[in-house]
């Protein structure tokens, strides 16, 4: 099967020749192409070349256009700092309160340089990798974006104590979200990865999800024209899986390996389970440990047609041995061979 057929089959619960393999290796392409991150995350052609190297080296079934949330903060005026060993981060927020955010001019999703980088990287990644792998793109939701502009504390403060301003915030950001979604679709991507910083149970409680998070997600996702995978941010979506599994366009949810059985029991059958390994577990394990863990997970999920082996959380760190990532792929291939 071709990667496209394999992933689409998995998302639709149809038989596959082997499990799809979708680790998050956004920065890893820079390592494979020996490219400084300061150029990789500024020049779309270099990003696309890096993702092509990811496909060729690891045989992944899908790659993701830049996992670079700070870049969206930069579009609003936040300042970035670049590093040698990790993706850029925000060194200074554009503001510190939701009032400042509401006074800011919205960046143009077509011409703002930060958005141009993200969009052009997606387009070129499709051009270079689209024949061999699916290409997904991150969509930062209106629930996460303010934290990249006024900081986590400033946004939490608004979510909890400045609720009268939230309709104004979302009325500005939902159209922006949808405009970006349309542009990414025009760039040729196959699916969206929906950011999950402020919709996981590590960050927010159920009452906030029900009152605020869910209505915004419904508003955003209901308009999408491509499948959406809900990313877990750095936390867990398990506690709210019953709420998120029924959202429009949601084809899958990112989960850790030990969460999958419980999540499956509470999710609609149509929702795929994506994940199994945190980025840190892939970085810290030995190839043999990771191989055995992957085999065990594949065995546990053997009767679950809608399962995709992937990494969850942030990007796999740059100093992760390539052998560790290859061990996961080997586990998938060995399992398929033994079937």
């Amino acid at each position: 099967m071709h990667s496209r057929e394999r992933i689409l089959a998995a998302l639709h619960g149809q038989p596959v020749d082997r499990r799809p393999f979708v680790p998050v290796l956004s920065s890893y392409g820079a390592r494979l192409t020996n490219m400084p991150l300061s150029r990789y995350y500024r020049e779309p052609a270099l990003y696309a070349a890096g993702q092509q190297a990811v496909v060729e080296t690891f045989g992944v079934d899908a790659v993701i256009a830049p996992l670079l949330f700070p870049c969206e903060g930069e579009a609003f005026g936040s300042e970035l700092r670049f590093y040698d060993n990790q993706p850029p981060n925000i060194r200074r927020m554009a503001g510190s309160s939701i009032d400042e955010f509401l006074a800011m001019k919205m960046p143009d999703p077509v011409s703002n340089p930060s958005y141009v980088y993200l969009l052009e990287s997606a387009r070129l990644t499709v051009e270079r990798c689209g024949k061999d792998a699916l290409v997904g793109a991150i969509l930062t939701t209106p629930l996460d974006l303010p934290s990249l502009v006024v900081g986590i504390e400033g946004w939490l403060d608004a979510l909890m104590f400045r609720r009268e301003l939230l309709p104004q915030v979302f009325d500005r950001l939902v159209p922006q979200f949808l405009a970006r979604a349309r542009l990414l679709k025009q760039a040729g991507i196959d699916f969206y990865v929906i950011s999950g910083g402020f919709d996981n149970s590590t960050t927010v409680m159920r009452s906030l999800v029900e009152s605020t998070i869910l209505p915004v997600l419904k508003r955003c996702l209901g308009e999408l024209e491509l499948p959406a995978l809900l990313h877990n941010g750095g936390g867990s979506l398990l506690a709210f899986a019953d709420l998120y599994g029924c959202l429009p366009q949601v084809a899958g949810i990112y989960l850790d390996g030990q969460e999958m059985a419980e999540a499956r029991a509470g999710l609609p059958a149509s929702c795929a389970l994506i994940g199994g390994f945190t980025e840190l577990s892939v970085q810290a394990g030995t190839p043999e440990q990771l191989y055995q863990q992957a085999r065990a997970l594949l065995q546990e999920r053997r009767d679950d047609a809608r399962f995709v082996l992937a990494t969850i959380g942030p990007d796999v760190p740059l100093n992760t041995p390539a052998e560790n990532i290859l061990a996961l792929r080997r586990a998938i291939r060995d399992e398929a061979t033994e079937k």
């Binding site: 403060d157 960050t203 906030l208």
Partner: peptide, 11 residues
Amino acid sequence: KQCLSLAQSYV
């Protein structure tokens, strides 16, 4: 125990 979220801790 992971029974409390960041938002609740913030409050």
